[in-house]
Simulated assay, not measured.
Amino acid sequence: MTFQFDFGPEGVAGEGYRKVTPADSYDSERGYGFVKGSQVSAVRRSGEPLVGDFCIPFDATFVVDVPDGNYIVDLSLSDELAPTHTSLKTNGERLILKDRRTIQGQIVWEKFAVNVRGGKLKLSFGGLAPRLNALRIAHSPELITLFLAGDSTVTDPRDGIFPQSGWGQMLPYYFKHDVAVANHAVGGRSSKSFIGEGRLDAIKEEIKEGDFLFIQFGHNDQKPDEARFTDPETTYKEYLKRYVDAARSANATPVLITSVQRRFFDEAGKLKDTHGAYLDAVRELAQEEGVALIDLAEKSKRLYEELGPEETKKLLLWGEPGEWLNYSSGVQDNTHFQEYGSLRIAELVVQGIRELNLMPLTMYLR
């Protein structure tokens, strides 16, 4: 199953491609188009097939209805007469391209993987001078899927909370097109409530041999309510083991991750640990079960202490009154990240992948 689109002013499309102009707003019957509110214009430079014309998707989102699953996406973002500057996020605002530049006349095709849930593949464009010449979308069920189970520090953001961001949102940026990231993490969930809501069952329905399941909980396992609380000495490890068993039953690889640190410093500028025995429980379970461990608590501790109390505010969700549109009264959140912070934390997760030499994931890192 393949979808192919040629973008630009009205005219003849490349062979096998559908022509898309700025006037093509998303329509459910047609199954593709730019969503309402997108700023799109079009330019023709030459008669060169596919890359001789383009749309300028300035702060625009293009949507294609596709069945759920993994897809490889190829897109061209070139201009014969001008340099370009494009950023791109896919479903769930997952980062794919950041400040991608081309020089005048440079023909560039970018290739990446997208995991689709909910029947829509979304491409959200940013940048100072974005371009979109052509787009190919091919169903690729054979791709390695990297599943993420976790909480708000991992999840893709909801609408209306920018710049809050989870590190799972940024993970696709570090992978080539051979790996699709399926971020099932949801804010407010513990290892217990995630299972209670059937979210692990949803992963079990999709995970296959050769896939990976990254597991990071703990922030909400500390909460006192019955639906979420687990005891680090007993039930926390028991619930985490159910994730490990779910991956192994599908011949997939589980990876345990300790909770990313909260931003709390003592007077000497040293980080205060707020997770206590929950971190030890993850480390113990990894050793007992022979499971790969990324010690994100330790890695984020080193990062925070290196930056110090003031600089770490640039990682976390801090803002003055009026600084962020969605937090107009100001915000001081020492748990959740803004996008720059989640990108840095995702970098630490990638560092852990390299250190463990998790094959073949390591091969497919950019």
Results as ranks from 00 to 15, higher is better:
Val260Pro: 02
Thr61His: 02
Ala138Tyr: 12
Phe212Arg: 11
Gln216Met: 13
Ala250Cys: 06
Gly290Arg: 10
Arg131Asn: 03
Ile56Lys: 15
Ser87Trp: 13
Asp295Ser: 03
Lys208Asn: 01
Leu348Lys: 00
Asn70Ser: 15
Phe125Ala: 13
Gly126Gln: 01
Arg248Leu: 04
Glu197Gln: 11
Arg283Val: 04
Leu146Gly: 00
Lys19Asn: 01
Gln332Asn: 15
Asp273Glu: 12
Ser140Leu: 12
Ser41Ile: 11
Ser76Pro: 10
Asn133Ser: 04
Lys192Arg: 15
Thr362Glu: 09
Asp65Phe: 01
Arg366Thr: 14
Ile195Trp: 06
Asn183His: 04
Thr234Lys: 12
His177Ile: 00
Lys272Phe: 09
Gly330Leu: 12
Thr90Trp: 04
Phe34Met: 07
Phe34Pro: 04
Glu323Phe: 07
Arg136Asn: 13
Trp167Asp: 02
Glu267Phe: 06
Pro321Cys: 09
Gly166Lys: 02
Asp273Thr: 05
Phe54Gly: 02
Gly92Phe: 07
Tyr278Asp: 12
Ser87Gly: 15
Tyr304Ile: 02
Leu317Ala: 06
Glu206Ser: 07
Ala182Tyr: 05
Asp151Glu: 03
Glu80Ser: 02
Ala113Phe: 04
Asn133Thr: 12
Ala82Thr: 09
Gly31Pro: 03
Glu209Val: 08
Arg158Ser: 08
Leu296Phe: 07
Ile96Asn: 10
Glu288Gln: 14
Asp280Val: 12
Gly16Glu: 01
Val12Gly: 06
Val51Cys: 14
Ile345Thr: 14
Lys270Leu: 11
Gln164Lys: 10
Asn183Phe: 07
His336Leu: 11
Pro172Asn: 03
Arg189Gly: 00
Leu316Ala: 15
Gly319Cys: 05
Val255Thr: 07
Val260Cys: 08
Pro49Met: 01
Glu288Leu: 14
Leu132Arg: 03
Val43Gln: 12
Ala268Val: 12
Asp178Gly: 05
Gly322Thr: 03
Glu355Ile: 13
Thr274Met: 15
Ser328Lys: 13
Ile107Leu: 10
Ala180Ser: 12
Asn334Lys: 15
Arg263Gln: 01
Ala247Ile: 03
Phe175Gln: 01
Gly11Asn: 01
Arg302Asp: 13
Arg263Thr: 05
Met170Arg: 11
Tyr174Lys: 05
Leu75Cys: 02
Gln351Asn: 14
Glu355His: 10
Leu343Thr: 09
Tyr17Ile: 00
Ser38Tyr: 01
Tyr26Val: 06
Glu209Pro: 00
Arg263Trp: 02
Gly290Cys: 11
Ala82His: 13
Thr230His: 11
Gly341Asp: 12
Pro309Met: 14
Thr235Gly: 04
